[in-house]
Design a binder for these strands. Structure first.
Ligand code: MN
Ligand code: MN
Ligand code: ZN
Ligand code: ZN
Lengths: 139, 139
DNA sequence: TGATATTTGCACTATTGTTGCATGGATCTG
DNA sequence: CAGATCCATGCAACAATAGTGCAAATATCA
């Protein structure tokens, strides 16, 4: 499947491509780091908070984005790879939260090793975050 | 250093052993899983929320407990090993959050591998949580 | 004992995340 | 195209968690 436009990308995940959803997706594509709901509020100040919240919720439910719980207290979101299903451990990767600039980065090439869980512990999802200082911030 | 009593354990971390702090520590020792502030509120309903909040904060600042951000929305706390300094990656371990019973487990024997971070990314702390179903919950 | 420092309790505040409901626009069906 | 239906949006309110300011109580020290 070849996805060129934002509209096609939404349709591929069975998301109705409304004006707002297209604009949020464009913002996500352009962002280098993961974004939060309050980031969206700042970017789209004319739109209602609830609409943006539900936009992210819809994206999440349809596997367009994944959720990141860094130590910042606010949930962040980042685009999934085109054919990602967010299954553990295949599609789970490391995240890095910079406590200086408060940006959260995806490291998709750093996969998560399989942990040797005790008998009858069934993994479903994973959240792996390293906190520290990123390369853009002075030591 | 040999730490037998709760009082000694607090003093070893330079925490003044008040009555409340001793009771909370005992509860932490007895707990099999990580606890939240609201767990403490239920357990010690006579005490003020703020006191319990600040007790955990003090424990955290003195390295007696470590903080776990599972996906439950509430921060959890668990006792550190006696000589733990919470440094990455030495003292960081995997946590498991059961979405059925909402308990959070420490797996201290499952260490965290060193990730090959890009140049000039300086790790300081880590939060590694797998969500799923624990061995006590029916499939 | 009196002075000083720490701990606790109460009342508020802040932030994030979430839901109910009414409205408006899009989409479907005949 | 008209009417019915469905979905997205906006507004308001709510809930849960986290955190602060300040004064009273308690412990510690000289
Ligand atoms: Mn990511
Ligand atoms: Mn732990
Ligand atoms: Zn940074
Ligand atoms: Zn369980």
């Amino acid at each position: 499947m070849n996805i060129n436009t934002s509209e096609e990308r939404l349709k591929a995940r069975n998301i109705q491509p409304t004006a707002m959803r297209l604009r949020v997706l464009t913002y996500l594509v352009e962002s280098q780091a993961a974004i939060s709901l309050s980031d969206l509020e700042k970017k789209f100040s004319q739109a209602d908070r609830t609409t943006l919240f539900r936009t992210l919720k819809t994206y999440l439910e349809h596997g367009l984005v994944h959720q990141i719980n860094d130590a910042s207290g606010t949930t962040k979101y980042a685009l999934c790879a085109e054919n990602c299903t967010c299954t553990y451990p295949d599609d789970i990767h490391l995240h890095f939260y910079c406590s200086s600039c408060e940006q959260t980065y995806c490291f998709p090439h750093l996969g998560i090793p399989e942990f040797d869980l005790p008998e009858n512990f069934k993994p479903a999802r994973g959240n792996f975050v390293i906190t520290g200082q990123c390369s853009s911030c002075p030591a």
